Simulated scan of single mutants.
Amino acid sequence: MKFIPAIPDPTASEQELLQRYHDTGDLALLGKLYSPYMDLVFGLCMKYLEDNEAARDAVMQIFEQLVVKLRQHRVEYFKSWLYTLAKNHCLMELRSGKKARVVSLPDNIMQSEAPVHLNGSEQKEMNLQALEKCISALTTEQQRAVTLFYLEQRSYHEIADQTGLDWNKVRSLIQNGRRNLKICMEKKIHEQQL
Rank of each mutant, 00 (worst) to 15 (best):
residue 66 L to T: 10
residue 64 E to N: 15
residue 66 L to N: 07
residue 84 T to M: 12
residue 63 F to Y: 15
residue 68 V to D: 02
residue 64 E to H: 13
residue 83 Y to A: 06
residue 45 C to G: 10
residue 77 Y to G: 01
residue 74 R to Q: 01
residue 58 A to V: 11
residue 67 V to I: 14
residue 82 L to D: 01
residue 78 F to R: 04
residue 82 L to I: 06
residue 49 L to I: 08
residue 68 V to R: 10
residue 64 E to P: 07
residue 63 F to H: 03
residue 73 H to E: 09
residue 56 R to T: 12
residue 65 Q to R: 14
residue 53 E to Y: 14
residue 75 V to L: 10
residue 65 Q to N: 12
residue 56 R to F: 03
residue 74 R to A: 00
residue 70 L to A: 06
residue 73 H to R: 14
residue 59 V to P: 02
residue 52 N to M: 06
residue 58 A to G: 06
residue 77 Y to L: 04
residue 77 Y to V: 06
residue 57 D to M: 15
residue 53 E to D: 13
residue 47 K to H: 15
residue 62 I to A: 02
residue 50 E to W: 07
residue 50 E to S: 14
residue 83 Y to W: 07
residue 60 M to Y: 15
residue 81 W to T: 03
residue 53 E to N: 13
residue 80 S to M: 00
residue 63 F to G: 01
residue 66 L to P: 05
residue 71 R to D: 05
residue 44 L to H: 12
residue 75 V to R: 11
residue 50 E to M: 15
residue 51 D to F: 09
residue 76 E to Q: 01
residue 82 L to A: 03
residue 57 D to R: 15
residue 49 L to W: 09
residue 83 Y to P: 00
residue 79 K to V: 08
residue 43 G to P: 12
residue 56 R to C: 02
residue 54 A to V: 09
residue 53 E to S: 13
residue 82 L to K: 05
residue 52 N to I: 10
residue 70 L to S: 04
residue 70 L to W: 08
residue 84 T to S: 11
residue 69 K to I: 00
residue 74 R to G: 00
residue 66 L to G: 06
residue 44 L to S: 13
residue 48 Y to Q: 12
residue 66 L to S: 05
residue 63 F to P: 03
residue 51 D to I: 09
residue 57 D to N: 14
